[in-house]
Nucleic acid binder design. Structure first.
Lengths: 208, 208
DNA sequence: CTTTCAAAACCGACTAGTTGGTCTGTAAGC
DNA sequence: GCTTACAGACCAACTAGTCGGTTTTGAAAG
């Protein structure tokens, strides 16, 4: 072990410690000790503890944003797009759960100069969701009485909250969760969930 | 001004400082300075900074739990119960937004002896939601293909996430948000949202 | 109504421990 | 020989909590 570059070992160790104990619950000395490196090595690779926190934020939000854009572009109708975005969004948890936990728990502690670029990407991500909902309503696929903002934040909230309870080693696989979420959301927004072209995104009706 | 009991002034000040800057972003000295009290007064009223954090947690979760129980008991059908619980749950934000923010941001920093009673109440709250969904499925009002846990966590997630974006001084009132959430959730879980007895809980269909 | 007096409430200078960050030095690569 | 990567002792700043002392309170005694 301990063959990876020192920088990556630090990030890895810090990530899991932050996830478990919170940013302020972990000292630089501890990160250094558990990643089997040194104070010197740490500050050679990072300007400060804050920069490390920023890096963790950036890796996640950049990935999530890219995936959402890809999902948007890879489909052509609002229903398909919403389905694809929810799918990719949920599945990010499989790879990035520790990042996401740190992201949503510790972002208040980002120094302003670090918070700015992160917030921009965050806003872009949100706008993609809002856009899909808006286009879905305009296209007549989604219920016109929906509020774009509230429906959008509902979706973002229910998916993001997953980081509080999802356990990668638990009985529910990320694919199952994604399928249930998609079903839940589509039933909430579609005009006609019984629509046969949307049916492939829904759960099969349970037999009585 | 400054007529309220010192203890309340400390809690009030701390609450808003914690909400804005996080538990670790606020020192006891600052709480004391901004509440116009003293170190001595602080430690006369609280055993420690941790105890103050616990107190904030407890006030909120106790209230939320009580409200959920009342909502459950005040109705007799699963649909009505779910509606009532969502309504009361969302409306808690009106009074307790700072508490809720602190609750969900800082609970990792609760010392074990404080975390335990909080987690018990939290679990109880969750079980009320799960129970309503389970009973709704059994009664044939909710779609049988739902997963009780995932649907439950979806609801809890979307409502809780509100603390990240709800602004009491913004254009959306808490009543509007509650109505949209209830509509979203009921469409997601009901077998037949068009059911006339459920219709009074939904948004009126928008004219084309 | 006044005095007494002890307990509770409150004050703020001080402390002990902790923590992010620095600095000097060393070894390896080019 | 010179830059880059890393090591680890050291430091300055900060912060939760303490402790001796002062004020307020309220009830009982005079």
């Amino acid at each position: 072990m301990a063959e990876k570059p020192l920088r990556d070992r630090i990030i890895d160790t810090a990530l899991h410690l932050f996830e478990k104990y919170g940013y302020h619950g972990v000292t630089v000395d501890r990160i250094v000790a558990e990643s089997d490196t040194s104070k010197g090595g740490f500050y050679h690779n990072f300007k400060s503890k804050d920069e490390l926190l920023y890096h963790i934020h950036d890796v996640f939000i950049t990935y999530a944003l890219t995936k959402a854009q890809e999902a948007y572009e890879s489909c052509s109708t609002p229903t398909e797009r919403l389905y694809a975005i929810v799918q990719s969004f949920v599945k990010v948890f499989h790879l990035y759960k520790p990042h996401i936990t740190v992201f949503y728990q510790e972002s208040t502690y980002l120094k302003p100069e670090y918070a700015e670029p992160i917030n921009e990407k965050r806003e872009e991500f949100k706008q993609i969701i809002f856009r899909v909902i808006r286009e879905g309503i305009e296209a007549g696929e989604f219920r016109p009485e929906l509020s774009v903002e509230i429906a959008g934040m509902s979706i973002i909230g229910m998916v993001n909250w997953t980081y509080k309870w999802y356990n990668p080693d638990g009985p529910l696989s990320i694919e199952e969760i994604a399928a249930y979420f998609a079903d839940f959301i589509l039933h909430a927004v579609l005009c006609t969930p019984q629509n046969p072209t949307a049916a492939r995104f829904l759960l099969p009706p349970a037999a009585e």
